[in-house]
């Protein structure tokens, strides 16, 4: 049906080619000098939040709360609006992060951490950084390289292990990942390691056979250590949009995620999709990746994260 002639994108392009202004600036523009928050302003705020990948559902909830809170506020200044939005956003993250038990690391030996995620999220890099962090804190760390699928995944992890100064257990490409999981944990038990980090192959959450394979790894771990894995971290790419929600939902069906690692936050992506993930699943965010160096993994701080959205 060729009712319409092709539409030019020039207008869209012009709109986007403006330098992306910082959030505060936008809210300044939207609010300064205005006695009350009108619909237009709220729409603008909505757009600002949407551009951080927060997603329409969560944005609508937040805006709803902002509207309600503002009714009870005498002041409707930029400060107030900012404060209300930030506080709503922080609440979501904090509610999920109450689940973290900081002391559990010393209760179990070996402490087993399984790292999962889709392809390209940055699992292997995160493992290298985690190994380095734990090693620096004085723990005896061993890595199990259960990504037997991707070409040269072994080599990549080996380089990270060497940088971090930790041991690594590997298998041949194409080997059953569960066998490597088994070897790594067995070695950890026999040789008195504190922490086992298990790297897995990237798997799209829609690939059922790969998800079954993940389930099998859990069974293998359980056989050796009924309490393990102590942590299962899903690694997410901050540039990912709403699909991250589906990723987490699917991984939950085959595994028992206890935390999230958000990578690539050193770019311009804000990673706002985690608000809905936290709101729905109450899975805490544990670490954020902010670069490619071995020390570029930071412990997640909800307030800092929210403030960064507004910078």
């Amino acid at each position: 049906m060729s009712i319409l002639k092709s539409i030019s994108f020039t207008k869209i392009k012009d709109g986007l080619s403006k330098t992306r202004e910082k959030l505060i600036g936008k809210i300044n523009e939207a609010i300064t000098g205005k006695a009350k928050i009108d619909l237009e302003t709220l729409n603008e705020i909505e757009e600002i939040l949407l551009s951080s990948d927060i997603g329409l559902d969560t944005v609508e909830i937040i805006i709803d709360k902002v509207k309600t809170s503002l009714k009870n506020e005498n002041s409707r200044s930029e400060e107030t609006v900012k404060k209300v939005i930030k506080s709503e956003l922080s609440k979501i993250l904090e509610a999920a992060n109450t689940k973290i038990d900081q002391m559990s690391l010393s209760k179990f030996k070996p402490y087993v951490i399984l790292i999962i995620g889709v392809n390209g999220a940055g699992k292997t890099t995160s493992i290298g950084k985690l190994a380095y962090n734990f090693r620096s804190e004085g723990y005896k760390v061993i890595i199990g390289s259960a990504d037997t699928f991707r070409a040269a995944a072994n080599d990549q992890l080996e380089i990270w292990a060497r940088k971090a100064g930790v041991e690594i257990i590997q298998g041949k490409t194409g080997a059953d990942p569960s066998s490597i999981v088994y070897n790594a944990i067995k070695t950890a038990i026999d040789q008195n390691y504190d922490i086992v980090l298990l790297d897995t192959a990237g798997r799209l959450h829609t690939k059922i056979n790969l998800m079954q394979e993940l389930k099998k790894m859990h069974t293998t771990i359980n056989k050796l250590l009924p309490y393990a894995p102590n942590d299962v971290f899903i690694v997410l790419d901050a540039t990912t949009g709403q699909n991250a929600i589906y990723q987490v939902n699917e991984f939950k069906k085959y595994s028992t995620p206890t935390g999230l690692i958000i990578n690539k936050l050193d770019g311009t992506a804000k990673g706002g999709v985690i608000f809905q993930i936290c709101r729905e699943n109450k899975i805490p965010i544990r670490y954020i990746g902010v670069g490619e160096e071995i020390d570029d993994l930071q412990v997640f701080n909800p307030n800092e994260f929210v403030n960064a959205l507004f910078e």
Binding site: D53, G120, D237, T239, T240, G241, Q242, G267
Partner: peptide
């Protein structure tokens, strides 16, 4: 990556 969000 087809999963990329707003930052694309």
């Amino acid at each position: 990556d087809s999963m990329t969000g707003q930052d694309a």
